[in-house]
């Protein structure tokens, strides 16, 4: 059994803790949070899990194989570093780091100590986005012309706010919270952005941070496209993320539920007819043993635990990939301020 701890029992931490708790090859040994209500709940209902309000104390007292770091972004560096130095495998929530220097240090440290390292960009465990990546790698739309990456949702829809997500210095804001997902998807599915232009960081309701991000991204292969992200759009029930790519032979539109493919000519080897084809998540979802909020949340934990068990490094959502996303975020901040 992989002895595991979850640090930070917010939305993601609780989710990870439950998935680890149900995992046949992992044991939820400890949790750590500063909110006493959470800890008393754990103590009262599952005494087999040790509950800590102090990270250092937990690290001293527990013998762990793996940790999930799901604290606010500003705390990632210290906690991830401490874990790696003890040879503990680390799953860290996104966004990865507040500064590129710290992020780079963690990437190097993880390589040096040979620990499995993964960041929670869960969209890569959604079957539709995976299939899109596979089809693009096969070149089914020919030379690409343009792409868009979008995400909309109803996080901040009024002028009041009280959590760390409203503090830019702590890694809050639509750019860190929402846009990071889209940037990471673009980076891994289409290509790595190398420069950005015309960035708009707009405030609608928030005072401290941006509520929306619009920009033009130029990728390594020269392809350019548009980023459009807004977390203050209440016409969406929940976060909705999508990618579109247009090329000389057709077009692909992808979200978490559907993959829509338009081809100018039939592609027999892929079984795709001329015109529109639609693939649904019901056929593409990754099978999981325990389902909590979407297959992707369980599948990413399964992948991490599997790599820890087999001592394999893994190539989906590595620290290095997440650090690259952080570097694009920094480009956007710099461009947006100019």
């Amino acid at each position: 059994m992989i002895k595991t701890a979850v640090i930070g029992l917010g939305k993601m931490g609780l989710s990870h803790a439950a998935i680890v708790g149900a995992h046949p090859e992992a044991k939820l040994s400890a949790v750590c949070d500063t909110l006493s209500l959470m800890l008393s709940g754990v103590k009262q209902y599952n005494p087999s899990v040790s509950a800590y309000d102090d990270f250092n104390k937990m690290m001293e007292q527990e013998t762990l194989d793996a940790v999930f770091v799901a604290t606010p972004t500003k705390l990632h560096y210290r906690m991830v570093k401490a874990a790696i130095e003890k040879g503990i495998h680390v799953f860290c929530e996104k966004p990865f780091s507040l500064t590129l220097e710290q992020g780079r240090e963690l990437v190097d440290l993880a390589a040096q100590h040979k620990v499995v390292n993964q960041v929670g960009y869960h969209n890569h465990f959604i079957g539709t986005f995976r299939e899109m990546k596979r089809l693009l790698a096969k070149g089914i739309i020919g030379t690409p012309f343009h792409f868009t990456g979008e995400a909309y949702g109803p996080v901040v829809v009024r002028s009041k706010s009280g959590s760390w997500r409203s503090q830019a210095a702590e890694g809050g804001g639509c750019l860190f919270d929402y846009a990071s997902h889209v940037l990471n998807l673009i980076q891994e599915v289409i290509g790595r952005p190398v420069s950005v232009k015309g960035t708009l960081l707009k405030k609608f309701y928030s005072r401290e941070v941006e509520d929306a991000v619009f920009s033009s991204l130029i990728l390594k292969n020269g392809l350019s496209g548009t980023l459009s992200v807004n977390w203050s759009d209440e016409t969406y029930r929940k976060m909705s993320t999508s990618l579109m790519i247009l090329g000389e032979k057709g077009k692909i539109i992808c979200d978490a539920t559907e993959l829509k493919i338009y081809l100018k000519e039939e592609n027999a080897s892929e079984g795709l007819s001329k015109g529109w084809s639609i693939k649904y998540i019901t056929d593409l979802a990754l099978p999981v043993n325990f389902y909590l909020r979407g297959e992707e949340y369980s599948a990413q934990v399964d992948y991490f635990i599997e790599n820890v068990k087999n001592r394999t490094p893994g190539n989906i959502n590595t620290f290095e990939q997440a650090l690259y996303t952080d570097s694009v975020i920094e480009m956007l901040i710099k461009d947006g301020k100019e």
Partner: peptide, 12 residues
Amino acid sequence: VLTDMILGLGAN
């Protein structure tokens, strides 16, 4: 979501 969270956390 809540049932399965309680289930996963072992808070039976």
